[in-house]
Design a binder for these strands. Structure first.
Length: 822
RNA sequence: GCGGGGGUUCCCGAGUGGUCAAAGGGGCAGGACUUAAGAUCCUGUGGCUUAGUGCCUUCGUAGGUUCGAAUCCUACCUCCCGCACCA
């Protein structure tokens, strides 16, 4: 019989209407912590498993439901793997450098450090309430100098290997952030944080990481089978490998033909077959070398044009009209020596290819629009379309193309490139969309770039032994780069010559912090090296990485880049950071909209915990839908989950622990097998459904082993209540550390299942008859069914609420069934 | 425009060739329990029917493949998301 320890205290918990399981949850959370249940060490005997969630930016407003969802998914898997006998590393940390802390400083006058510390405390408290089985001893915090010292160290290594460099370039500048943005942080020409603010173009001297050195490898997804196709596709598009040709066009500034001494521009094109149709060139209006091409006569016009396109910043980029202005320069078409005008245009991307394109209005829509607008010649060179009305972008047979007339596009491409190659003015080439990673930020709350500028020696790296370069605490916010206000900090001696030097006042993009954090968890307290190689060898790569898909193009590319770089430094033995990546779905509000403060439909996970308990929230989050699909919050659904937990609770309260029937044994073993598969596939919702229907079958008596098996499976979803019940049925130790239930296939009785199915049909049939008869006005209380023993297969079936001792079975409330010996 | 993912019975959501009128939850209806309510339990929940049964309609729309389709193919409609003038 089940033994209950504190009936008085527990009384409130027996009542389903109660504020529920709060006390139990607290009790077990404390016990887990006290017993250090989830702390792990490297033990090579056991197989390791590394579960990681994307660590949060600890905002002041605390956890939102999306966090709770994300961590619940990871925690369930970590618990599952732990119970399966793996040595599970499941850590948590905080990506705590970043803008909100600094903005809080500006707005409310709180120091970013204080703000961050407070936020982290709050976050941790809330995460602990969720019952997450983290190894808290491995906590990391990127705003801590112990951590970002190694960001600086990596920077120095990048510098050493020529992968960090400084260059003057036109950059994306957000006037509201007062900082430069990476290409990845510009969306639709707007800042990714300030969605209403148009990004401006500025020319600044900035630090870059040469991520493009790894573009080939980043574009290789062969080791990423465990990542979703969506993410891989997004990355592939982002890296944007495209095959084409590069053709040299000579640019001349003067009007005369004789002065062919200008610069050669490499022009990228995927359609060399249309080269005879080039009637103008367009250089990007943002191109840093634009002015070099502008003739004196055209200077005024060009400047006017540049002013004009800057002023349209408010307008959506998508409905911008193609505009341009003649620069005064000409280019020479290398195949026929024709002289063609060069325009500056607003529709050409400055840093893709060489920033200048050859325009073929007859066969490219954008060029066509432009030519129409400015009255430039449209020359048809591919047969097949109606050039008068629109550009023909398809393929066809060449015309007006000199010696290449009559060839088909594909063939012509080859021949033309061959021809140009011979003359050394053209070649096949591969172009990428991916650009180098701009890491400089004119912000305070980031990692200082470890560089000192000396008048004599130039940019000098801070020696490794002097790391970390700590952030100064006394600074002024509000005007430009805050670090410039810390004069004491800024003015230092040059490490090389000892002369006067000034520190770099830019900090690094916060994405550097998250690019390698998964490695630091393996050895978070090491102050001698970035991490111990042996420890990382043991734990890494990450086996399951859980996070939102919005990070496909930023974080997930950077982290791959860092992994490859650190590998090339000889620190890692693997190529990709994570074996399996899982992207959870988006959580919408009850009304179907996104949860947002302005719509007033935000659900706070803590409120739900207070109302229904943590276990309920966890169960609900993963039981509505597959974790990778979007779904809407529903409080009704929460109540459904709550009801179920109560049922489980009540059942174990009164169940007799003894022997299971064959039927339950069969069912439970079948369920174990299926639920194990469902969890492994991260289809928690299906697993829960199977547990529910198993539970519905439970009888008044059950064996200890079967009771344990059920609780074990259920415990990954609802760990607190299962610990409590585990204790009640006298399970050994913590259920969280027990062995996962293993299916005993011999006990799965297929025959029995089939027989049962037949019984269900029988009951259904009889019920139908009863209904009909009753419908005809006869009041029948009971229906008796008589069966000959030899003829029946259902004889051995042990039905719910009735044991085999009797020869009389109650099939349902109003059907009684007898076995008769003839 | 390009790319990706969807549209399932009142709602949320499973299901990817037959065992499907379609899991599970929620809602709703009826019943049991109860002084009553809540909770709990049972039953029902596309339509028409039968003694057992059977038939019709249904998985965005329209076609097609197949002995057989929610499931495969084609076209279209529609919703969501990502990228966006990449030459």
């Amino acid at each position: 019989m089940v033994n209950f320890k504190h009936p008085k205290k527990l009384k409130i918990f027996w009542t389903p209407k109660s504020k529920a399981f709060f006390g139990i949850e607290k009790k077990w959370q404390e016990r887990w912590e006290k017993a250090k249940c989830f702390q792990v060490v490297e033990r090579s005997r056991r197989k390791k498993f590394y579960v990681l969630e994307m660590f949060p930016y600890p905002s002041g407003s605390g956890l939102h439901l999306g966090h709770a969802f994300n961590y619940t998914i990871g925690d369930i898997f970590a618990r599952f793997k732990r119970m399966q006998g793996f040595n599970v590393l499941y850590p948590m940390g905080y990506d705590s450098l970043g803008l909100p802390a600094e903005n809080a400083a500006i707005k409310k006058g709180i120091h970013p450090k204080k703000y961050t510390e407070k936020s982290i405390k709050n976050f941790m408290k809330q995460q602990k309430l969720l019952g997450l089985s983290y190894d808290w001893s491995r906590l990391i915090n990127t705003s801590n100098a112990d951590y970002h010292k190694w960001d600086q160290w990596i920077f120095l290594k990048m510098l050493e290997k020529g992968l960090a460099y400084k260059k003057e370039s036109s950059v994306n500048w957000c006037p509201k952030c007062k900082s430069v943005l990476a290409n990845e942080q510009v969306h639709n020409g707007k800042c990714w944080i300030h969605k209403e603010v148009s990004v401006q173009i500025k020319h600044l001297n900035q630090w870059y990481f040469k991520i493009t050195d790894y573009k080939e490898e980043l574009n290789d997804f062969s080791e990423l089978d465990g990542w979703g196709d969506r993410i891989k596709k997004l990355q592939k598009n982002w890296i944007g490998k495209s095959f084409g040709s590069e053709i040299d066009f000579e640019i001349i500034k003067t009007k005369g033909f004789s002065d062919i001494n200008g610069k050669k521009w490499k022009i990228f094109t995927t359609r060399p077959d249309t080269i005879y149709g080039v009637t103008f060139m367009v250089i990007s209006a943002q191109h840093p070398e634009l002015m070099e091409l502008v003739s004196d006569e055209q200077k005024k016009d060009v400047e006017k044009f540049l002013k004009k396109i800057k002023s349209v910043s408010e307008k959506e980029i998508s409905d911008l009209e193609k505009q341009g202005v003649f620069t005064g320069s000409y280019a020479i078409n290398p195949v026929n020596n024709e002289r063609i005008p060069v325009y500056a245009g607003n529709f050409v991307v400055a840093d893709y290819g060489s920033g200048m394109v050859m325009a073929v209005p007859a066969h490219d829509e954008r060029d066509f629009q432009f030519a129409k607008k400015y009255g430039i010649e449209i020359k048809e060179v591919i047969k097949g379309g109606n050039i008068k009305e629109r550009a023909f972008t398809g393929k066809g047979v060449l015309i007006n193309s000199g010696r290449f007339n009559g060839l088909k596009s594909e063939r012509a491409k080859e021949e033309i490139i061959k021809f140009l190659q011979k003359k050394k003015i053209g070649r096949k080439t591969i172009q990428y969309r991916l650009r180098d990673w701009l890491i400089s930020r004119q912000r305070y709350w980031g990692v200082p770039i470890p560089i000192i500028y000396c008048e004599k020696c130039g940019a000098v790296p801070v020696p490794e032994k002097n790391l970390p370069v700590k952030l100064p605490e006394k600074i002024k916010f509000g005007k430009g780069n805050p670090l410039k206000s810390a004069e004491k900090w800024m003015n230092v001696k040059c490490p090389r010559c000892g002369g006067a030097g000034k520190r770099e006042t830019d900090t690094m993009d916060t994405f550097v912090n998250s690019s390698w954090y998964y490695l630091r968890y393996c050895d978070n307290k090491n102050n001698k090296e970035i991490f111990n190689k042996g420890k990382v060898d043991y734990w890494c790569p990450v086996d399951l990485y859980v996070g939102g898909k919005e990070h496909a193009c930023m974080h997930l590319i950077y982290v791959r880049f860092y992994t490859k770089f650190l590998r090339d430094l000889g620190l890692l033995k693997f190529n990709e950071p994570a074996v399996r990546l899982f992207n959870q779905g988006m959580l919408h509000a009850e009304d179907g909209n996104k949860m947002s403060k302005s719509l007033g439909n935000v659900i706070n996970p803590l409120d739900m915990i207070k109302k229904y308990s943590t276990d309920t929230l966890r169960l609900f989050l993963v039981s509505v839908a597959s974790p990778d699909s979007d779904f809407s919050w529903s409080e009704k659904g929460m109540q459904g989950s709550f009801k179920f937990i109560n049922k489980v609770w009540d059942y174990f309260k009164k169940v007799k622990i003894g022997k299971s029937s064959k039927r339950i044994e069969s069912k439970i073993n079948k369920t174990i097998k299926k639920v194990t598969e469902d969890i492994e596939d991260l289809r928690y919702n299906l697993g829960i459904i199977k547990l529910r229907s198993l539970f519905d079958e439970f009888e008044d008596e059950i064996s200890k082993k079967d009771a344990e098996s059920f609780l074990k499976m259920f415990s990954v979803f609802c760990p607190h209540i299962c610990e409590e019940l585990w204790e009640k049925i006298r399970g050994k130790g913590f259920i969280s550390l027990s062995d996962w239930a293993v299916a005993d296939e011999r006990k799965i009785d297929k025959k029995l299942e089939k027989q049962e199915e037949q019984i269900f049909k029988l009951v259904e049939d009889i019920n139908n008859i009863l209904r009909i008869v009753q419908g005809k006005g006869k009041k029948i209380k009971r229906c008796y069914v008589y069966v000959l023993p030899n003829a029946n297969m259902i004889q051995r079936v042990n039905l719910k609420e009735q044991s085999l001792r009797s020869r009389q079975f109650i099939l349902s409330k109003n059907i009684v069934y007898f076995l008769i010996n003839v």
